[in-house]
């Protein structure tokens, strides 16, 4: 049994400790907002927060998350109103939408560390996340919009 703290809830899962966190989230806990895209830490669709840091859950063993604090897209904000989630809808970023939870989770760490990121900051922080539909311009806009929302509310 491995005890996990995900989105402030406690879960006990009976899995091989080498199982990537991604598959525990998706197969065992029905938290399917975290996506599988490549399995080798190349696309960023599976980004979650482990103790506040963005990690690729497809290459993060579940044993590494034991007793740590995990946040997924489902738990980023209780009412799904994180400035990024608001801005993403306001800018109408998604096309197919598949990569967007990973994009938002990566952007959330950037925005926490850098309250007013420049385009260059965004390019550097977000180049690990592939969007096959090519919504990058809108992701940039939405991160700027979220930064402004964040400044207004804090």
């Amino acid at each position: 049994m491995i005890t996990l703290n995900i989105n402030t809830k406690t879960y006990n899962v009976d899995v091989d400790p080498n199982t990537p966190l991604l598959w525990v989230l998706r197969d065992e806990l029905d938290l399917v907002g975290t996506k599988y895209g490549c399995g080798v830490a190349q696309c960023g669709a599976c980004v979650v927060h482990l103790n506040g840091e963005a990690v690729r859950s497809c290459v993060t063993k579940v044993s590494r998350a034991e007793g740590q604090k995990v946040v997924t897209i489902e738990g980023l904000a209780e009412k799904h109103d994180h400035p990024l989630q608001v801005a993403w809808q306001e800018v109408d970023v998604p096309q197919c939408g598949y990569c967007q939870s990973g994009q938002i989770m990566a952007a959330a760490v950037l925005l926490r560390e850098n309250k007013n990121p420049t385009d260059a900051d965004i390019d550097a922080a977000m180049s690990g996340n592939i969007c096959r539909c090519g919504t990058y311009l809108r992701i940039r806009s939405a991160i700027h919009a979220a930064a402004e929302l964040q400044r207004k509310t804090t």
Binding site: D27, G33, T34, K35, G97, Y98, Q100
Partner: peptide, 27 residues
């Protein structure tokens, strides 16, 4: 007009084929 599935997408709701599940489903 905004994407009607915008909120579902940004909150990680099961929308895609890979998210589809049924009780007793095998991989």
């Amino acid at each position: 007009q905004k994407n009607v599935e915008g909120l579902k997408i940004v909150s990680g709701k099961p929308l895609f084929g890979l998210d589809y599940k049924q009780e007793g489903m095998l991989i």
